[in-house]
Design a protein around this nucleic acid. Structure first.
Lengths: 308, 308
DNA sequence: CGAAATTGATGCGCATGGCGCATCAATAGC
DNA sequence: GCTATTGATGCGCCATGCGCATCAATTTCG
């Protein structure tokens, strides 16, 4: 059996029991009394049982109506709260934005943008999935978050990429290391060093390997770890040096670690916003994305596969 | 915020996600594709956030849509099952009838009528509130059951009464009692006996007292108990005799108790159907009541206060 | 890479359903 | 018994929701 009535019918029934009057219930629902009377009659016919016993001066629920009333109150209350929540989300008064972000970019972009966004929309929560680049792209592709902040990765025609900034790879070494006294180094300077790197399957490593292959530079990756932060930890112990994205290194002076630009050529990864090609952002997510884009103005997004 | 959409909108949204197609969802809901497209669009505008991401070949829920979907599935499933239940009740395919009945009448009227009703409507349950006469009338008046089987009690203008049968008061005594050998007795025969009776506030006692006052008969109520069955129990011990409604006495031969008609005059209580004056019965209750009435045809009900 | 098939969105006109007004019948209070 | 009020019904009107036709976009296939 298909549902063959409307929400207004159910609300009319509940309003009559609440107010004790067809007239008052009609007022409550912005209807005339005859319109409400017809709605009640139609609902009773649809359900095949009387719900109300009434005279011109009195109204009460039948036994069937008594059974139905608490159920309808609960269902309509739940529906109404969820609608209220949806509507508040739509008006940026309440809700949540879910985005994926590679951890190294999170610390750079998000604090300031989150501060701005929160000041403007104090009741909207930001939910950040801190995932690896590949996991983050997958999360966006599968619709688990509204967009992601990531870097150029595998070409996926379903995703678009809006660059925000270039993040150069730099050298990280212990203060006591001979190279630490330089203002910058070249790739050739690193040829004889024992280098600490991340997994060869990671996005960062893929970008780096491609760029260096083009420049005929070969490096000696002696240690391989899974997380950039582990690279930094090992550098701190002095057992080797590492090539890392700038954002993954300490932003301020560090007691034991020195970071130096690597020239000839400068190799960078591009950090940007990843979205589904036909995605539609909720108003809150759209606003958050706008603030992100403003923090670094760039041309409109295009498919990843067209970026060189 | 008021609910400003319809059940069909919600069902359209869920149907699209279930079928993966506006076309197929429209078919499912007996709409054309443009009509369904408009419903989705209107729902999204009402809620202030997109629910679906779609191209001409593909459709998926947004993050907001994903959050809403399980809630709506549950709410609409519950609504649909309760409507199915109501509809089955309306068509006498399923449901429940609740009536109040004084215990002494229950054994007489209900077994046969319940058998007939159950044969015709095997999936409708009969719920019997076995209450005293006064409690039964109150339950009917307050809408806790659809009607009651009771006797003439306090005049309540909100209730109507349809007589089913007259139930005479009879003498119950031990087989060894001197009166047991008679075929009948008169009230005068009881003047010098120690009588067991129920509470002077009970319906039965009120009827009896009124009738005997009119006939200038005075009885000696020596013992007073709360339940008619207790009267019978005491009669069985031989400590006294009792005046009881015929229906409250053993219907068959009893090893120790004899029941005799009491003449000059015959005093009876009237058992009948009690209803709210403006009551509306569910179809099942209406059918059950009709079977009851058929078991003893009587004139249409009239207000209790007009019965002499 | 272009053509073809298919699908969601939109313009348009029409029919119907839901509405409010007027009124009736019933109810409750004085 | 009269009066005021309320729920139910008849009636006419109009706004809404519909389907048809069509467009633009998407995906598949040769």
């Amino acid at each position: 059996m298909r549902i063959n009535f409307e929400l207004l019918d159910l609300r009319a029934f509940l309003a009559v029991l609440e107010t004790g009057s067809f007239h008052k219930a009609a007022e409550q629902l912005n209807l005339s009394q005859p319109a409400l009377s017809r709605r009640i009659k139609q609902l009773e016919e649809t359900l095949g049982a009387p719900l109300l016993e009434r005279t011109t001066r009195r109204v009460a629920a039948t036994v069937v109506g008594r059974e139905l009333q608490p159920l309808l109150v609960r269902l309509l209350d739940e529906l109404e709260s969820s609608v209220l929540s949806m509507s508040a989300t739509g008006k940026l008064q309440h809700g949540q934005v879910t985005i994926a972000c590679v951890p190294t970019a999170a610390f750079y972009f998000l604090p300031q943008v989150i501060r701005q966004f929160h000041a403007a929309h104090p009741n909207i929560r930001i939910r950040i999935l801190d995932l690896s680049a590949s996991e983050g792209l997958k999360s966006v592709a599968q619709g688990e978050c509204e967009f992601g902040i990531s870097m150029l990765g595998s070409a996926d025609p379903e995703l678009t990429f809006t660059p925000l900034m270039d993040d150069p790879f730099v050298l990280a070494c212990h203060r006591d290391h001979p190279l630490a006294a330089r203002k910058s180094v070249e790739w050739g300077d690193l040829s004889n060093e024992l280098l600490i790197g991340v997994s060869r399957h990671s996005g960062n490593r893929t970008i780096l390997d491609n760029a260096l292959a083009n420049a005929n530079v070969r490096l000696n990756w002696f240690y391989e770890v899974n997380h950039l932060s582990t690279s930094l930890g090992l550098v701190e112990t002095g057992i080797g040096i590492s090539v890392l994205p700038r954002l993954a290194t300490p932003q301020d002076d560090h007691p034991t670690i020195v970071t130096l630009p690597i020239l000839g050529p400068v190799v960078s990864r591009t950090i940007g916003i990843v979205e589904r090609r036909n995605g539609r952002l909720s108003p809150a997510a759209a606003r958050f994305r706008a603030l992100l884009a403003e923090s670094r103005s760039t041309p409109p997004g295009c498919p990843l596969s067209t970026l060189s």
